[in-house]
Write a protein that binds this DNA or RNA. Structure first.
Length: 412
RNA sequence: CGGAGAGUAGUGUAAUGGCAGCACGAGUCCUUUGGGAGGAUUUAGUCCGAGUUCGAAUCUCGGCUCUCCGACCA
């Protein structure tokens, strides 16, 4: 992508009143645009990051047998009546302009929808287990949207639902999802604590959250840094300073953001939707369900909270919008442009996603500042003053040197 | 949903009852070209609605929106 053709621009000043690092840098860099509190447009750069994250999630969920599908955002009232969740306060009701009453809710979760569908297709133990998921925009009328992408009223979520003939089988799959989640967050560069959370009325045991340490987080958890045991403060069984229940360590308290969660639902929704199957011995039983979410936009925001310095974002390579940032620096002469264009073409041809700052009449300071802000992992600078490798020098945004040799082959 | 603060040009700000100004951005011209360049010139603004007043960005009332703290949630 040639930066001269990118329709967004960077902003020099941080948005007024905005405090969180992710809202600041993502807005200034032109990754996102705020349309309303907690409602964001993903601009081309932000969209690329989200695509990288969804690709990773899709790969890992497919690997545990998830079947991708797409459910509607308009969810019929009758479904919510069945589950008793019509009046849940986070819901946005949707009504036709000329209709008297709202007949839909903008989906804020999809247990109801999939339970309804499953009840038409599942009839025998032979149909179980199965798991289906989607990436979808969810709508929740949060009383207070805040912290940029960390808590929005409209956000992209990966929601996975699993269906089983027994609790045993549910918990077998639950462990698989847990492992998949661990891989997903690790690949996104996040260290996530697998955290015990209170289940509430909706589940048959505790639920689990994946929490990433950051001051911008809204949750407080106690963790053992030795073995990784973690518990949400709301559970209240363990306190900071106490001995870890799993090992010799001592529990620490920290602020964190929940990037994912997994719920053993049991039969709440299968009962509401009459979702039953015949066992091998011919009895009719309710399907046992689990549900598993990952907030995609929240992952993106969390990564920015974790990976930034005073100048901007430092994307982990796996989810960076581009891998290389090629900069023409100094006076852009025809000769210099030729060196840059050649290198750009070579990189693109080799499948290296490259943002090429080919802007003319933009000062070096501006280009470097923009590059720092955008946070693309590898920076290749083409300039008259660079003596290395025919006017090209390579730097890594995060400051480490060892990976730079990757680009040697392109610098002939 | 409770509490607090704030809405002035695309962005950031000044003007506290009396000519809406500055910087960045954007346009044009010239100079400059390795860390947010310089000069000239142009562009563009008081959230909405009432009220007080000779006169309102400024004061009053109502609304809308945003931010922060709290409660609640992926």
């Amino acid at each position: 992508m040639r930066q001269s053709e990118l329709f967004t621009k960077t902003l020099k000043d941080a948005p007024k009143d905005e405090v969180s690092a992710n809202a600041n840098f993502l807005t200034r860099g032109g990754f996102i645009f705020k349309n309303a509190a907690g409602v964001y447009t993903l601009l081309p750069l932000g969209f690329r990051v989200v695509q990288k994250i969804t690709d990773i999630v899709r790969e890992e969920i497919n690997a545990i047998g998830g079947q991708e599908m797409a459910m509607p955002a308009l969810v019929p009232k009758e479904y919510w009546d069945k589950s008793g969740r019509w009046d849940v306060e986070v819901g946005f009701e949707a009504k036709g302009k000329h209709e008297k009453t709202a007949n839909f809710v903008l989906g804020w979760t999809h247990e109801e929808v999939l339970a309804e569908i499953a009840s038409k297709y599942i009839s025998s133990y032979e149909d179980l287990p199965f798991a289906a998921y989607q990436f979808q925009t969810k709508f929740r009328n949060e009383a207070r949207a805040k912290s940029g992408l960390l808590r929005g009223r409209e956000f992209l979520m990966k929601d996975l639902y699993s269906f089983h003939e027994s609790e045993n089988d549910l918990f077998r799959y639950y462990e698989e999802v847990k492992k998949a989640y661990e891989k997903i967050f690790a690949r996104c560069g996040l260290k996530a604590f697998y955290t015990v959370a209170s289940g509430g009325d909706f589940t048959i045991s505790n639920t689990h959250e994946f929490q990433v340490e950051t001051e911008a987080g809204e949750d407080e958890i106690v963790v053992c840094r030795l073995c990784g045991f973690a518990e949400n403060k709301e559970v209240g069984k363990h306190k900071a300073g106490e001995r870890c229940p799993k090992c010799e360590g001592v529990l620490d308290k920290l602020k964190a953001v929940e990037v994912g969660n997994i719920f053993p639902l049991g039969t709440k929704y299968s009962k509401a939707f009459n979702l039953k199957f015949r066992t091998k011995s011919g009895e009719s039983e309710h399907v046992v369900m689990g549900s598993y979410g990952i907030g995609i936009g929240r992952v993106m925001g969390t990564v920015v909270e974790v990976y930034h310095d005073k100048n901007g974002i430092i994307w982990p390579e796996a989810i960076a919008p581009f891998r290389a940032h090629l900069l023409l620096v100094g006076e852009v002469t025809d000769e210099l442009k030729k060196v840059g264009d050649n290198l750009y073409n070579k990189l693109v041809k080799a499948g290296i996603e490259t943002l090429y700052d080919d802007r003319v009449d933009v000062g070096a300071g501006v280009k470097f500042a923009d590059a720092d802000l955008l946070g693309i992992p590898y920076r290749l600078v083409v300039s008259e003053k660079t003596s290395v490798k025919e006017k090209v020098e390579v730097k890594e945004r995060g400051g480490k040197e060892e990976k730079l040799m990757k680009f040697e082959e392109f610098l002939d």
